[in-house]
């Protein structure tokens, strides 16, 4: 069965991310207080609340425009590095999706892959640096050739976030901690996993026709 990925699907996805970040904000902040500056939960909550509010004001007519608008709002409201990083992820993905009214899952996978590459380039980071990339790359790969294995992507993102625990941070404020960054899960990888959990939830809801 193919899920219709239209603008409304993407709007609901962003709402689901916002709700998940809202629920997990304390945990994100707690993780960030161990190796960062303890603002990740509040920053992400502020950014996603603003993004969802912008999407509710006027729902853009294409998936690409939804992601572009959400990304733009994240860049202008988050206030920390996660703003430009997630903003770039969504905007690049939105650009790849273009102005088609609905997109195939394979196309979404390509768009997300391109977005993750843009994040890596912006942050001059790679897998293994203990960043959001350690959740994002495995998640996009787990979407599979058909691009619609959303549950596999959810699991891969969560497992990817867990793999950051023994890593030593090589980017961001946590990198100043050196060895002391080892033993803590990366907050950015954790919030990245929430994006994919929300995607799976949104796709599941679309497939069963049940309201969230």
């Amino acid at each position: 069965m193919t899920v219709a990925l239209d603008a409304d699907f993407f709007r609901r996805w962003m709402s689901a991310v916002s709700a998940a970040v809202d629920r997990e904000a304390d945990r994100l902040t707690e993780l960030d207080s161990a190796i960062g500056d303890a603002d990740h939960g509040a920053n992400m909550r502020r950014g996603l609340t603003a993004a969802v509010a912008a999407l509710e004001e006027g729902v853009p007519s294409s998936p690409g425009a939804v992601l572009a608008l959400a990304g733009r709002r994240l860049i202008s409201t988050v206030g920390g590095a996660s703003g430009p990083l997630y903003g770039t992820l969504l905007r690049r993905a939105g650009k790849v999706l273009g102005d088609q009214e609905s997109v195939e899952p394979q196309r979404l996978r390509e768009a997300l892959h391109s977005g993750v590459e843009a994040v890596a380039q912006l942050g001059s980071a790679a897998r293994g640096d203990k960043t959001m990339l350690d959740a994002l790359y495995p998640a996009v790969e787990a979407l599979g050739d058909s691009g619609d294995d959303f549950e596999a992507a959810r699991r891969a993102a969560e497992e990817g976030a867990e793999t950051t625990v023994p890593m030593r941070a090589r980017r961001g404020r946590a990198s100043y901690l050196g060895e002391r960054s080892v033993g803590h899960q990366d907050p950015g990888a954790t919030s990245s996993a929430l994006f994919f959990a929300a995607l799976a939830d949104t796709a599941g809801t679309a497939a069963t026709g049940e309201p969230a």
Binding site: I75, G79, G80, A81, S82, G83, P84, G87, T88, R173
Partner: peptide, 13 residues
């Protein structure tokens, strides 16, 4: 540093 660098890079993009 950090988000200052990334934000300006993003705005320039």
């Amino acid at each position: 540093l950090g988000s200052a660098v990334l934000t300006v890079r993003t705005l320039l993009a």
